[in-house]
Design a protein around this nucleic acid. Structure first.
Lengths: 154, 154
DNA sequence: TTTTTCGTGCAACGCGGTTGCAAAAACGGC
DNA sequence: GCCGTTTTTGCAACCGCGTTGCACGAAAAA
């Protein structure tokens, strides 16, 4: 993805498109799964941790990325797709929060964008604001690898 | 709850019922919501953090408590009710994992024991192992308090 | 009793996240 | 372009939660 398109995307969200912000956004777009702060640190060795952190905070506030707590202790961030209404959750409307899947094999966290988070009926009096729904198990690749290692257990 | 009953409960799970373990179990049972390590530290000032931590780890391994990651950064622990099958999740069977609710007003995390976590149908290839489902919003008390403060917004 | 195992407290560490501060860069008026 | 102001960035340090190593004391086993 070229820099101009990314720059325009940032401008569209009222974010000044600095070189680092474009770089960080591009890096996140190139990943097929949600990235933690350390993941990004690893790929962007020249960029300071606090800069990445502040950039993520900024992106979050402008709904250019969303955050998932997958239970690993490190927050994961993924760029929103066009039309994502994350951050607009409210009563009877969870925006389009989707399900996330944490693979216990490769430790990657995936956005299952097709799957909206199911909503249960809360007991009387509770008021719902948002939700975090994370499924855990094995992703297709890891499941296949596990099956290959122990074929008898099909 | 008296010490003998708690002691028997621990013995039933093959845990040696020391004075501290009984104390910690009793403290957790007295709480109406899930407790973090710091919550317990606060109530049990005489007991060392690492002891509470190791006790919780032990209780977890013996399925006497279950843990919830409510996204606050601190794990929450709640004693299992009789018949709880936590830790026995597997394919097509999530044990009786239940929904948890985090109140953004009072920062308490509640077990909604009547509500099993909903399961969505995963894309081809994914293998489900367990799930974490946390709803966030206001508990009845905080919702009532908020409504009282801004009555026009009923 | 002696030996061994287990439980506990203390101190320290590690990691993820967060903040204060100062230098560098970008912006805006002239 | 030049200068003052604002914004962005890097560095260092800090915080909280979880975790571990170690040593001592208590309890169980021999």
């Amino acid at each position: 993805m070229n820099a101009e398109a990314l720059s325009d995307e940032l401008l569209g969200r009222s974010i000044r498109p600095t070189a680092l912000r474009i770089l960080i956004l591009r890096t996140m777009k190139e990943m097929d799964c949600a990235a933690s702060l350390s993941d990004l640190e690893e790929r962007l060795v020249t960029v300071d941790k606090s800069t990445i952190f502040r950039t993520l905070t900024l992106f979050l506030a402008h709904h250019i990325v969303h955050a998932v707590d997958d239970g690993t202790g490190a927050m994961k961030y993924a760029v929103c797709r066009p039309g994502c209404r994350c951050g607009e959750e409210g009563e009877d409307d969870l925006g389009d929060l989707h399900t996330h899947f944490y693979c216990e094999g490769c430790h990657h966290t995936f956005c299952l964008r097709g799957l909206p988070v199911p909503v249960v009926t809360l007991p009387e009096g509770f008021r719902l604001h948002t939700a975090n729904y994370v499924l855990k198990g094995l992703c297709p690749e890891c499941a296949a690898r596990a099956a290959a290692r122990t074929p008898e257990a099909h």
